[in-house]
Design a protein around this nucleic acid. Structure first.
Lengths: 339, 339
DNA sequence: CAATTAATTGACAGCGTTGTCATTATTGGG
DNA sequence: CCCAATAATGACAACGCTGTCAATTAATTG
């Protein structure tokens, strides 16, 4: 099990080590036949370029980082898997770096945390997920350090960088249509925090679908939660006690939808018979409760994988033009909306 | 923002680069005063050793990997945070590598997947979480490659490597005592898969607690689930339809406990008034349902952090003796067992 | 206090790759 | 068929650090 180096391949292929290097770095000006010889020899001897040596010589680290500050481990895990898939294929390492939410517990701003990190670790690129992807100070730091970055689902200025995203508004529209198709015409919506970009888009989509279907929006109350399960629970209890009568509730994320479910079950309602419920995210919890939750599955894995691919492209080609990619969501119709 | 190299520090501290190197590698035989001079200069100039150069010269990668095959993203996330904390402090990168479960979808065994990975990426150490930590073939591969590894919560042969774990049996005992203290004397237990080490230990602890309290174990049925929420739901429904009457159900993990909750709520039972429920894991879902789930919180973060520390010790000191560390669990008494 | 021994430090050659620039094929035009 | 222009390849010096081993300094002993 001794080490195979570039010299071995060069000798086997009858070329110089520089040519082998060219092949492995996808550099131009290598004849097809030469490339094939090199690749054959490499495959034959199971050669893998040494990451450390490459890094030292080229001043790269072959590490890309996902900066995040999101308590939803589901989401993080799915993002990570997507990044990982792309990185693994390209010979990069994918690392996750959790940021602290600035506040009483943490005196460092996102930007300062990033600065500290960059001093300590050499990295080739960064992927930013919400809410970091909308922090202008943090982004300035990356710009100053000249580190390529790609954003996941940014709420603002999509054109200012490469990014991948889904059309939240269209997705919420689709879900609402589904509920309407099930015969519901009095549907409540529980939104997330007002300042959350996606939350606003989801509500807009909901309202648009009602209008498009010619429903009376007056009969469809909009409640305000904060994305926590607890808030979904409370809003649902309030609603059940109030005079409004609805046959379906659409929550802007899965956690709140589960809160709604718990309150409905506690009140003795049959789901979906007496109350249909829909969430948004496609997270793990939707599959743990019973009946399983009807929801919108965001292609988190795909978003992350494409983001990583875009990032690698930017790393390989500095100055590359920005790209924005929209991926389709999937409507998961499950037990909380159909028998 | 030009690069600070070891030469700059050596010059500033008035020593040779080798001495600076010694300081940064915690090598012995450096006088305190010399070390201080070097550290002062390094701090002053914000020097960080170049990972690639270190790796190339010392044949290390400063990357440790968490090999896992566990669908619970909660658990993974907590493990990762623990490893990450330790790694970051030590200047290592922490990377997660998901394995495929061998089966119809994946023809490669764990051992083969590991072999492939090791050919491709140079890594300094591995952390194995269940179920990989009990796969002897996989472990043989690591041994052959001479890669240090530490196991998280192994079910077998704890002495064969360094590892960190919790006393599942004692924890289940504690939870059972809690339920008994709440006045329950007819308690059902839902176990996990028979071949799962932790599951067996939890059941043993449950039974021991009953016996210790002088309860009639005949009145306490043991049901068999598979750790899925669905199985908890089904077992609970079966139980409710049967002639057995229990006032509490203790499930061997949180997912099953949530399944139990859903079935109980569907049946119109008040929780915890008519049925108390307890889980095991302390995972995120327990906090999303309502009422929040009484459970055992494993110190996953701590287990992982200590495991990483042990791993780094083994990396730095080849041939170091194995250590087994037991960490205490925490009983989280929440709404499903107390009003 | 000289002679040993142990502790501390330094000089220098790699580590395996890529960047730079020189060199050699190959191609197309007149 | 020759020459310029271009494509393809190679030689060799970094890259920033650690391993080895020799050199120096400090501590200990009789």
């Amino acid at each position: 099990m001794k080490k195979v180096t570039i010299d071995d391949i060069a000798e086997a292929a009858g070329v110089s080590i520089k040519t082998v290097s060219r092949v492995f770095n996808h550099e131009p000006n290598v004849r097809e036949i030469t490339r094939d010889k090199v690749l054959a020899a490499a495959k034959d001897m199971r050669y893998r370029p040494n990451v450390a040596a490459r890094g030292l010589a080229s001043n790269k680290s072959f590490v890309i980082i996902h900066f995040h500050d999101n308590p939803n481990s589901d989401y993080l895990e799915r993002v990570h898997q997507g990044i990982h898939k792309c990185c693994r294929a390209a010979g990069y390492f994918a690392v996750m770096e959790p940021f602290q939410t600035p506040g009483p517990d943490c005196t460092l701003s996102y930007a300062e945390q990033a600065k500290d990190y960059l001093v300590e670790f050499p990295i080739d690129g960064v992927i930013l997920s919400p809410p970091l992807c909308d922090n202008v100070d943090l982004i300035s730091v990356l710009r100053e350090h000249n580190i390529p970055y790609v954003r996941l689902s940014p709420a603002h200025n999509p054109a200012s960088s490469s990014c991948t995203y889904v059309d939240d508004q269209a997705a919420a529209h689709m879900m609402t249509e589904h509920l309407i198709a099930q015969g519901h015409c009095k549907i409540a919506f529980i939104s997330g925090p007002e300042n959350h970009g996606s939350s606003v888009a989801r509500r807009t989509g909901f309202l648009a679908a009602l209008t498009d279907a010619g429903l009376n929006t007056e009969a469809c109350p909009i409640l305000h939660g904060d994305f926590s399960s607890r808030s979904g629970f409370k809003e649902c209890e309030t609603l059940l006690k109030s005079s409004s009568y609805v046959t379906a509730i659409f929550a802007a994320n899965d956690d709140m939808a589960v809160g709604v479910m718990m309150a409905a079950l506690k009140a003795g309602l049959d789901i979906p018979g007496e109350l249909a419920i829909a969430g948004y995210d496609g997270s793990r919890v939707g599959n743990i409760v019973w009946p399983p939750l009807t929801t919108i599955r965001q292609p988190v894995h795909g978003l992350a994988e494409r983001a990583a691919e875009l990032l690698l492209a930017h790393i390989r080609t500095p100055g590359l033009e920005f790209t924005q990619e929209k991926l389709p969501v999937q409507l998961l119709v499950r037990g909380t909306s159909t028998p």
